[in-house]
Design a protein around this nucleic acid. Structure first.
Lengths: 211, 211
DNA sequence: AGAAAAATATACTATATAGTATAATTAAAT
DNA sequence: ATTTAATTATACTATATAGTATATTTTTCT
C-alpha cells in the first residue's frame, strides 16, 4: 500500500506542538462549517466544494485534513455521542436516591440535546450514510444511554419510590421525548433550556409514578 | 408554456375509469418501491433508475407517472401525514371525558406511527428536500396534531381530571415520545403494537397527572 | 381493420461532484 | 541562505444521475 501523503488518517505526527494545534484548529473549522451545512442541506446534498468555499479554501485543503467526506460526518457524530454520554459523568446509577438521580440525569440530558441539537439532527438523519462498522459503534452508545436510564428506573421500582411497568420501555420513551427536542427547539422560543429541563423532569417523574 | 406530454401533473383526465385505476395502481407501485428505497438509502442517495430497475421498467415510465423525483417524495409524505391526522377522525376533542379521549388518541397515534414507520422516518429525515411551499403545508399538519393534543389536555386541566403544567409543552412531549417509536420499533420485537399502545397510554396518563 | 391516442422504451444531454495528480507556495531545519 | 518538509492550490479524471427528445409499441375508438 502506498504511503498516504496527507495527515488526515491519524493524529498529527510531528513533534512540533504548535503545528499539531494548528492542524487541530483547522479541523475544527472544517467540522464547524460541515455541521452547519449537513444540518441545513443534509449530508448527501452538501458538497465538499461548498464547505471549502465557505471557508475560503479549496477542496484539497479539506482532503488534507480529512480522509474523505464520510470521515467528516463520522467525527461529528462521534463528538455528539460522546457529549450525550457525558450526561452520566460522575453519576452512579447504582447508588443514591432514584428520584434525585433520575431528575438530575433528565435535566442534563435535556441540556445536552439542546446544546448539540444540530448534530443530533444529523445523527438521526445521516447515520445511514456511515459504513456498518461505524454505525455499530454509534448504536452501542445509544444503548448505553437507554441502559443507564433503565437501570435507575429499575432501582426506583425495587426501592418502592417509582411505580411503573416495563422499565426498558419507559427508558426508551424518556430518551425519545428528550431527543425529540431537536425537532422543535428554537433558541428564540418561549422557554429557556433550563425551563424546558425543569418541566420535562417533572413530567418524567410523574410518568414513572414517583412520590 | 408548452403542454406537458405526460399525465403526471394532475389527476388522470380520461373518462375511462379502468384506465384511471390502472394509472393510479402504477403510481402506487412506484410509491411503494420509492418508500422502501428512500427509507433505506435516503432520498438523495436513491436514484430514479434504481426505482425503475426494481420495478422492471425504465426511467421514462417513472417520469410518465410523476413529474419528477421530488414529486414522489411529496406524495409519500402527504400520505403519511394524512394517515397521522386520521387519528382524530370521529373524535371531538371539545366533548367527552378527557381521560378516555386522551387514552384513545394516544393508542391510535401509536398504531399509526407503527403502521407508517417507514415513511415517518423519511418524514423527519427528508423533509428538507422539499420546496418551501410543500414544507409549510406539512408543518401545518404537524401543528394540527400538537394542537389537538394540547386542547384535550387543557380541557382535562380545566375539568380537574389532569394535573400538569404547560399543556403545549406536554403535548409536544407526547407527540415526540410516540413519534420516536419509528427509531426503535422492530416487527419482531418484544412487544406487539397493541402492547406498546397500552403501555404508552398508561405512561402518558401518569404524565398528565390523570386520576 | 385502420387511425388516433396513450404508454413505454432507447438513447441521449447536461451537469454535478467526489476524489486526485501534480505544481506552487510557505514554513522549518540545518 | 539553502535545503527539506509541510501545506495549499490548479487543473484534472471519472463517474453518476436527473431529466428529455424521439422512436416504438400497445391500447382504444370508430
Amino acid at each position: 500500500m502506498a504511503q498516504k501523503k496527507n495527515r488526515a488518517a491519524g493524529a498529527a505526527k510531528t513533534k512540533n506542538g504548535i503545528r499539531n494545534k494548528l492542524f487541530d484548529f483547522k479541523r475544527e473549522q472544517i467540522l464547524e462549517v460541515a455541521e452547519r451545512f449537513f444540518y441545513h442541506r443534509g449530508y448527501q446534498a452538501t458538497t465538499v466544494d461548498a464547505i471549502a468555499e465557505e471557508l475560503g479554501v479549496t477542496k484539497p485543503f479539506i482532503y488534507y485534513h480529512f480522509e474523505n467526506k464520510r470521515d467528516i460526518l463520522l467525527h461529528l457524530l462521534e463528538r455528539t455521542m460522546s457529549r450525550s454520554l457525558s450526561v452520566f459523568d460522575g453519576v452512579d446509577v447504582e447508588k443514591g436516591p432514584p428520584v434525585e438521580i433520575l431528575k438530575e440525569l433528565v435535566q442534563r440530558f435535556v441540556l445536552a440535546v439542546i446544546e448539540t441539537r444540530v448534530s443530533t439532527a444529523m445523527f438521526w438523519r445521516d447515520e445511514k450514510d456511515l459504513p456498518i462498522s461505524d454505525k455499530e459503534n454509534i448504536r452501542k452508545m445509544k444503548r448505553d444511554i437507554d441502559g443507564g436510564l433503565a437501570r435507575i428506573i429499575e432501582r426506583g421500582i425495587e426501592s418502592g419510590c417509582f411505580k411503573v411497568n416495563d422499565p426498558k420501555m419507559v427508558s426508551i420513551c424518556i430518551a425519545g421525548m428528550i431527543s425529540w427536542i431537536y425537532t422543535w427547539y428554537q433558541s428564540d422560543g418561549r422557554c429557556t433550556p433550563d425551563e424546558i429541563a425543569d418541566r420535562m423532569s417533572e413530567y418524567i417523574l410523574n410518568m414513572v409514578g414517583a412520590h
